[in-house]
């Protein structure tokens, strides 16, 4: 009788264990059968409007320098993908042992533009070389933003011109080897008096402020008041492309393309990209002289 009892007890224990294991497995299965988590993306703040038009994704707008610095210092992207102007992805990879994020081909691009105060001396000043001449009062957005960094980058391309063409592919060496560069940059950075109110600076040029030229992205130049100022895209200037870094599948690509096109971006790759490392150096130099 005792033997039978022991046998029954042991069978019960085995059956109990199997049942418990099945229950645990079912729990796990339920977890893995759960609907896919909602995708999250971080958007370069100049692209926020286009990103907000996407469906099925959570969008966080962030200055690209914030994201890049988080990545460069060993932090995570903290989202599935990053929709951003291409130089920032490379800049984020400059941190110690930080590999570059997987990056899509360029989706859209825009030129860098300038908006000029109406003045006789500026009427025919429609080249980057002319705009970069000493004495111009120049306004641009923060170099922590794409419009700010690309704007001052284009002006540097004009300053370091190669004959009558801007040097859009300037390298760090060109900045280092130009004896007068820091002085020129210092003058540029202290020349204008225009308080940013959140919107791109080239849209503010008709408001009060002391400046000759404001720099920004071509997509933003279309919003300026043509009665008050001249918006120009100087020839042979640099272009800025939008890419997806991280998991490209997290972004509904066609929706993004359409939204960017509606915002004035042109499809595909631009023709004259910046050297991202040189832009990173330039950003540091600007911070040095404006500290």
């Amino acid at each position: 009788m005792k033997r039978l009892g022991a046998l029954l007890l042991s069978v019960a224990m085995v059956l109990g264990a199997i049942a418990l294991r099945r229950a645990l497995r079912d729990d796990n299965a339920r977890d893995s059968d759960a609907p896919e988590h909602r995708r999250s993306i971080i958007c370069d703040n100049v692209l926020e409007a286009a990103c907000r038009a996407l469906s099925g994704v959570d969008v966080r707008s962030e200055r690209p320098a914030v994201t890049a610095e988080r990545l460069a210092t060993g932090g995570s992207l903290d989202a599935d993908a990053w929709v951003v102007a291409s130089p920032w992805v490379t800049i984020a990879g400059f941190g110690p042992a930080q590999p570059l994020l997987e990056t899509s081909a360029p989706i859209a691009h825009t030129s860098v533009a300038a908006v000029l105060r109406r003045a006789p001396e500026l009427t025919s000043c429609h080249t980057w070389q002319c705009l970069a001449e000493p004495g111009r009062r120049v306004a641009h957005d923060s170099v922590d933003t794409t419009s700010g960094l690309a704007g001052i980058g284009a002006l540097v391309a004009g300053h370091l011109h190669d004959g009558d063409r801007p040097r859009t592919d300037f390298a760090r060496n060109d900045i280092d080897e130009d004896d007068g560069f820091d002085q020129w940059l210092n003058e540029v950075e202290h020349s204008a008096n225009l308080v940013s109110r959140g919107a791109p600076v080239i849209r503010q040029i008709q408001t009060t402020g002391v400046f000759d030229v404001a720099l920004g992205l071509g997509v933003d130049a279309s919003g300026v008041n043509p009665q008050a100022v001249d918006a120009v895209v100087p020839p042979d200037g640099p272009t800025v492309a939008v890419v997806i870094a991280g998991n490209p599948d997290a972004v509904p690509l066609e929706q993004l393309r359409a939204a960017l096109t509606r915002a004035g971006w042109r499809a595909g790759r631009g023709t004259r990209d910046f050297n991202p490392g040189a832009l990173a150096t330039l950003r540091e130099r600007v911070k040095d002289v404006t500290r």
């Binding site: 022991a6 007890l9 085995v14 264990a17 418990l20």
Partner: peptide, 20 residues
């Protein structure tokens, strides 16, 4: 009997723990 029960308990415990 005690040994047999103990062995079965071990088997049962392993089944739960290891999943297999």
């Amino acid at each position: 009997t005690t040994l047999a029960l103990g062995a079965l308990a071990v088997v049962a415990g392993l089944l739960v723990a290891c999943g297999g």
